Computed example of a mutant assay.
Amino acid sequence: MNPDMLEAGPVGAKVLSVFDFDGTLTRHDSFVPFLKFAFGKQEFNRRMLKLALPGLRFLLRRMSRDELKAQLIRTFMTGVEKAWVQQKAEEYCKAYWNKLMRPAGLQSVADEIGSGAEVTLCSASPAIVLQPFADRLGIKLIGTELEVVDGVLSGRLTGNNCRCENKVLRLEAIYGDLGEYRLRAWGDTRGDRELLAAAQDAHWRHFHSAKRRSRKQR
């Protein structure tokens, strides 16, 4: 952090430290591997076949990333009991923590907690899947919310996919005017651009190799 960043934000303001999850604190995406873990290889492959056409439409730019994400959620999460997903998320976190998490990222989260900052994850992945990770990290969680009706997932989202401008909007809904904080943020993809732009202290691919860090935000 340079001296200008230390002076950014209101004098005496609380530090709000926001970490993206997938690719930032983790070595790769967590949600699709979770689906494979939860449903088993055979059922996972069967359901993924249903996404072949939507995937092609996405590659041809005839479907947005958010639309493809919604289709993925419908394919795997429609009619599934919330309690079952929560249990599988706990098992997934326990089984894959060491393989998935970046040690440098874990240390950075611990450092932010130790500094007295308010610390949260802010991720496009479903909150129900990431909750065990947030609990183990000892921080708060903002993620994409899945609709639950009578204890069963409907396959629909509650609100918008938590990426791009929606990350900032979700943070504002919980913490209020972000200008009242000294905002620190860590991200690694195009979906984090607005979050990083809102921060006085922004970290792009901070835990990646120098080569990966040098790539432009896409």
Rank of each mutant, 00 (worst) to 15 (best):
C122R: 04
F133S: 09
E147H: 11
I113R: 15
T144I: 12
C122Q: 07
A117W: 05
T144K: 14
E145T: 15
L121M: 08
S123W: 07
I139F: 02
L146Y: 08
G114Q: 09
V148M: 07
G116W: 09
E147M: 12
L137E: 00
S115C: 08
D135P: 03
D135G: 03
S154Q: 02
V129P: 02
G114M: 02
V129A: 12
S115F: 02
P132S: 00
G138H: 00
S154H: 09
G155P: 14
E147L: 13
A124I: 14
G138W: 05
S115H: 01
G116F: 09
F133G: 03
I142S: 03
E118F: 00
S123Y: 09
G116Q: 08
L137Y: 05
G114W: 00
S115D: 02
V152K: 11
L141P: 04
A117Y: 01
G116T: 07
F133R: 08
S125L: 13
L153S: 08
T120R: 04
G114I: 05
K140N: 15
D150L: 00
E147V: 14
L141G: 05
I128N: 01
L153W: 04
I142F: 06
T144C: 11
G138T: 06
G151W: 00
I128H: 03
V129H: 14
S125E: 12
V119E: 03
L130T: 13
V119M: 01
V119R: 05
G116N: 07
